[in-house]
């Protein structure tokens, strides 16, 4: 394995880690299987590409993609809470609708931004970073963004609002007893989760230099795989926070995919690999749960 492959694992792993932090909010904290990330991840890409083409500052684009994703997450939440549609279906409805919306936003199914300045490629970085470090700039910037996202989420989960979000997933009767509307809390959680998913998509767009309308297919599977690998592997090491575990899980998962490709699979097989790996992880985590029960 050469250094380009290893850098690639870390770069993609870190980007998917941001999206997985969102999946961690819905899947682990809220206990809500939210499929809308399949639409909000490319939504982040579409918004980013469109805004960068318009000449908006690439750094300013990052919070804007988060807001776009959060708005879409709110829609999923509103459909589920107000219209009483089942959780899985609400996500599917929104992710399908977003496919068309993403096409509208980008105006085309493939929008390149190679020639534009991005957070990874700009004159400021060019003048600042010494030539020897150039191959590592991208991964360093990504590490920075991911760590900031993780720390902000950690901070949020320790606020009053964050406590309520955690309570909503684990016992929503308590949320009602505390005089709060559990529906509103769910909507807030979905907004945050999809904000992270869109932000990850936006960063990916800035890194790869284009928006691609089908890029979101299977995002939820990757996100769930990352979350489950991370939380299962690091569960026994009490020192690691769940959010940190999710970031590690993303990188490990990416390494597994790279290894599979390294063994001679074609890029077209990627989704198959993703699905097979995810299934493997689910089966292993089920076996582990069984073991724990037998011991207890």
């Amino acid at each position: 394995m050469n250094s380009t492959v290893i850098l690639g694992i870390f770069e993609e792993g870190l980007i998917y880690a941001i999206m997985s932090l969102g999946v961690y909010i819905t899947y682990t904290i809220l206990d809500f299987p939210d499929l809308s990330v399949d639409g909000t991840y490319p939504l982040g890409m579409a918004v980013t590409a469109a805004l960068i083409v318009l000449g908006v500052d690439p750094i300013l684009v990052i919070p804007l993609t988060f807001l776009a994703g959060a708005a879409a997450g709110c829609v999923t939440g509103l459909i589920h809470v107000k219209l009483k549609v089942r959780d899985l279906l609400s996500g599917i409805i929104v992710s399908i609708a977003l496919y068309s919306i993403n096409l509208r936003i980008a105006g085309t199914s493939n929008l390149p931004i190679f020639s534009k300045e991005t957070i990874f490629q700009n004159s400021f970085l060019g003048s600042l970073v010494p030539a020897a470090l150039t191959p590592y700039t991208t991964v360093i910037i990504l590490l920075l963004i991911t760590v900031v996202c993780k720390l902000l989420l950690d901070l949020y989960l320790r606020t009053r609002s964050g406590y309520l979000l955690r309570a909503a997933g684990s016992n929503d009767t308590l949320v009602t007893s505390l005089g709060r509307d559990k529906g509103t809390v769910k909507i807030l959680g979905l907004a945050l989760a999809n904000g992270f998913a869109a932000l990850a998509g936006g960063i990916m767009c800035q890194k790869q230099g284009f928006f691609e309308v089908t890029a979101g297919t299977g995002t939820i599977v990757i996100g769930l795989a990352n979350v489950i690998i991370g939380t299962q592997l690091f569960r026994h090491l009490g020192l690691v926070k769940a959010t940190t575990a999710v970031v590690f899980g993303s990188i490990i998962y990416r390494a597994c995919v790279a290894a599979a490709i390294g063994m001679g699979m074609a890029p077209g097989d990627l989704k198959m690999i993703t699905a097979a790996l995810f299934l493997l992880i689910l089966v292993i985590s089920n076996l582990q749960k069984g073991k724990v029960k037998k011991h207890a």
């Binding site: 009053r160 309520l164 309570a167 505390l178």
Partner: peptide, 25 residues
């Protein structure tokens, strides 16, 4: 809330009637 600590549960109960905002839990 079973997934939260005794302290976190007590803090939440103490926040009832106040805004659940971004202040420390």
């Amino acid at each position: 809330c079973p997934d939260m600590t005794i302290l976190e549960n007590m803090s939440m109960a103490d926040t009832k009637g106040k805004p659940f905002n971004l202040r420390r839990g």
